[in-house]
């Protein structure tokens, strides 16, 4: 097989709809697995980057996700959209990494103190504004990466992976209401950071 036919095949894959690519990948087609990597590596890296605190560990986790995908893709049944499923897998990978480094415990421990919920005082910064410029988006991103892990992880799982509270709870071994508290606090902390940063 010369390089030309290979190239053509790759181009074919690029145009192929996701379902067919996945089907071929489930049949251990290396080209199809490569195509999935190509399509989603950035998305997965993004999640890992927000979940984990260094680029290095995020890249490691991303590689790991796609290496494991070679086997685990067989278990994908199509009941959830693939990107969502993949991000869930990636989220699990990140939690594993956090757990291995012994830090995931924090998420579970610290939530217990305030599981009852808290009402913000009037001095709390209000929700982020409606219109937001590109530069401000960058600030938001930076602020998210600076959030403590126990806040950052659920927040990212919710607004990056778009997981439900239940799903996040499954990931983190938490109750639904605990997840709600963490996300609520994460947002407050984020607002505080942004308000502080803009002063």
């Amino acid at each position: 097989m010369g390089p030309q036919p290979r190239e053509r095949e790759t181009r074919q894959l690029e145009g192929l709809d996701l379902a067919s690519v996945i089907e071929r990948a489930q049949g251990h087609d290396a080209e199809a697995l490569g195509e999935i990597h190509h399509r989603y590596v950035r998305r997965v890296l993004g999640l890992c980057r927000y979940m984990l605190d260094s680029r290095e560990t995020a890249e490691d986790a991303t590689s790991e996700v796609f290496l494991k995908l070679q086997r685990s893709i067989a278990s994908y049944d199509g009941s959830t959209p693939f990107p969502r499923w993949l991000l869930r897998v990636a989220g699990n990978q990140c939690i594993d990494v956090l757990r291995r480094s012994g830090r995931a415990q924090k998420v579970m421990v610290e939530v217990d103190d305030g599981a009852a919920g808290i009402e913000p005082t009037s001095s709390e910064p209000s929700p982020l504004g409606n219109v937001i410029r590109m530069a401000e988006q960058a600030e938001v991103r930076a602020a998210i990466t600076r959030l403590p892990e126990n806040y950052r992880v659920p927040l990212v799982l919710r607004y990056y992976s778009e997981l439900s509270y239940d799903e996040i709870g499954q990931h983190l071994g938490l109750q639904k209401n605990q997840v709600a508290v963490l996300i609520f606090r994460a947002k407050q902390e984020l607002r505080r950071k942004l308000a502080h940063g803009s002063k």
């Binding site: 950035r42 890296l45 993004g46 980057r49 927000y50 680029r55 209000s126 929700p127 982020l128 504004g129 409606n130 937001i132 988006q137 960058a138 938001v140 991103r141 930076a142 998210i144 990466t145 927040l155 990212v156 607004y159 990056y160 778009e162 947002k187």
Partner: peptide, 24 residues
């Protein structure tokens, strides 16, 4: 108003997270 503000905040979060942190 509070619900509206929270909705737009969620939008901001989702939109912001679409990109990688700036160094990336």
């Amino acid at each position: 108003e509070r619900v509206d503000a929270l909705r737009s905040e969620n939008r901001v979060l989702s939109e912001s997270l679409r990109e990688l942190p700036d160094e990336e």
